[in-house]
């Protein structure tokens, strides 16, 4: 895959999830409107109309995760799209959270001798983590809270989203 930064091309990107940066952008736009009003470039009525229009645009922009029906998430999704040489490079992964929950049980199956050796290597590498203290319950708690996790990365030529649905 080509490096994401190698194509500084701006293009419209469809956003499957909500966008915290949009709220920031809206606040900036509102400031711009107020700035124009303060400068006397637009009238009070025009400023009001613009702000109302911005407020109308916001719910549509932020509708997705914010309006996602509350309940237990079932899947971890990774969605990525970057503009490649010709066609766009795309990645769309859906992993059932149940699979992650089952997977963390594997941690309990690692033989103690292997954990001790891994601990020694970690200490030697400057990462003093005691893997023998890692319990499947801890990892399960981590998976349980994954459904509130949203990672969004927006770049000029694409985006990356990690979220649960």
């Amino acid at each position: 895959m080509s490096h994401p930064m190698s194509h500084p091309v701006s293009r419209p990107v469809s956003h499957p999830v909500s966008h915290p940066t949009r709220e920031v952008a809206m606040s900036e736009q509102r400031k711009d409107v107020l700035g124009l009003l303060a400068e006397g470039t637009i009238s009070v009525e025009e400023a009001e109309r613009l702000i109302v229009a911005l407020e109308r645009a916001q719910p549509a922009a932020s509708a997705s995760l914010a309006t996602r029906p509350k309940g237990r998430a079932k899947y971890l999704r990774v969605v990525m799209e970057f503009l490649g040489e010709g066609e766009a490079d795309r990645l769309n992964v859906r992993v059932p959270l149940q699979l992650l929950r089952a997977g963390v049980q594997l941690a309990a199956l690692v033989p103690p001798r292997a954990l001790e050796r891994a601990n020694a290597e970690l200490v030697r590498s400057g990462v003093p983590i005691d893997l023998t203290q890692l319990r499947p319950e801890h990892l399960e708690a981590l998976v349980e809270h994954l459904d509130e996790t949203i990672v969004e990365l927006d770049m000029s030529d694409g985006y990356l989203r990690v979220f649960c649905e």
């Binding site: 990645l91 769309n92 992964v93």
Partner: peptide, 12 residues
Amino acid sequence: ALPGTRFDAQFD
């Protein structure tokens, strides 16, 4: 737990 898993990738 595998049902529902999907991996879809397109590069170039």
